[in-house]
Simulated assay, not measured.
Amino acid sequence: MSTIQIGIIGGAGYTGGELLRILINHPNAQIAFVHSKSQAGKPVYSTHTDLLGDTDLTFSGDDTRELVRQPGLDVIFLCSGHGESAKFLAENPIPDSLNVIDLSTDFRDESNGFVYGLPELQRERIPSATKIANPGCFATSIQLALLPLAKAGLLTDAIQVSAITGSTGAGQALSSTTHFTWRNNNVSIYKAFTHQHLKEIRQSLTALQPGFAPAIHFVPYRGDFTRGIMANVYTPYAGSLEEAKQLFGSYYQPHPFTHLSDAPVDVKQVVNTNKCLLHLELHDGQLLVTSIIDNLTKGASGQAVQNMNLLFGVPEDTGLRLKPVAF
């Protein structure tokens, strides 16, 4: 495979920065431009200060209509806020030869020709797509806890989800609930039972288990840490724990980043990686699945690169064998 020529729109935020960290070390990637309205003309390392010495790229403020039409460009990543991707595509005609990977919520319903980019669900469809809608972070963690059950038609009752995410999940712009002095030593609930990721979760489960109708009761928490998600998902299950482990192990055996752990899992095992780790327990007929990911890698930019690899016929794990923080 020849070098993949890449453009990034909205490169100054958390997902844009994480994408840069992965792509500058990807053996098949060449970053043609990084666009940012707010940081135009500045070195990338002036915003993402950890990249000093790793790249001399400068944020472009050029007309995006010209940037996306430059010869040889293979793919653009849209890393701007929710609602901005639809606006961008409406204002910037995209050549038929250019692939798009969107990290916002705008096209996760597979509208406008997009394919939902959860590789553990859509691996067969992604390589032939031209537009990929990258899944949400909570949605990724929760779906990976449920896909094997849905595939086997075993989701027959309400699903309970309690999940906590790090502060980077809220984006880089400061607000009253992201400021350090509020977030530190604090935990809070938000969007209980109404979180926007519920729609894409149900969409995926229904694709695997047609007619799926049970309620999904989801209570999200803001954590007092920077990155990572832990989702505890439980639902009635009539089989044994060993049968559940066999079901999950068989489903994820072909997938390089999702692994079943016999021991309880914790968030530090996945921070800075593209992994999802799952742990199963059975209590009084309730199967509890604990699912952990890094919200910025497997929950966003790492999964976007995973989709790019599939799109261009590169081995799925290329550039994504990342070192966990461990401690």
Score class of each variant (00 low, 15 high):
Ile4Phe: 05
Gly11Ile: 01
Tyr14Met: 00
Tyr14Trp: 02
Tyr14Cys: 00
Thr15Ser: 12
Glu18Lys: 13
Glu18Arg: 13
Ala40Ser: 09
Val44Ser: 01
Asp50Lys: 09
Thr64Trp: 04
Leu67Asp: 02
Asp74His: 10
Glu84Lys: 09
Ala86Asp: 13
Leu89Pro: 08
Ala90Asp: 12
Ile94Met: 12
Pro95Gln: 07
Val100Leu: 08
Phe107Met: 08
Gly113Val: 13
Tyr116Asp: 10
Ser128Cys: 13
Thr130Leu: 13
Ile132Tyr: 07
Ala139Met: 10
Leu149Gln: 03
Thr156Trp: 00
Thr156Val: 00
Ala163Arg: 11
Ile164Leu: 05
Gly166Val: 05
Gly166His: 04
Gly169Phe: 08
Ser176Thr: 05
Thr178Asn: 03
Trp182His: 00
Asn184Arg: 07
Asn184Tyr: 01
Asn185Glu: 04
His195Asn: 12
His195Cys: 09
Gln196Trp: 11
Lys199Tyr: 04
Ala207His: 11
Phe218Cys: 15
Asp224Thr: 08
Arg227Asp: 08
Ile229Pro: 04
Val233Cys: 11
Thr235Phe: 00
Ser240Gly: 07
Lys245Trp: 12
Gln246Lys: 13
Gly249Trp: 14
His255Gln: 15
Pro256Gln: 12
Val270Trp: 03
Glu281Ile: 08
Asp284Glu: 14
Gln286Leu: 15
Leu288Ala: 05
Ile292His: 06
Asn295Asp: 12
Leu296Gly: 12
Leu296Asn: 12
Gly299Ile: 10
Gly302Val: 11
Ala304Gly: 07
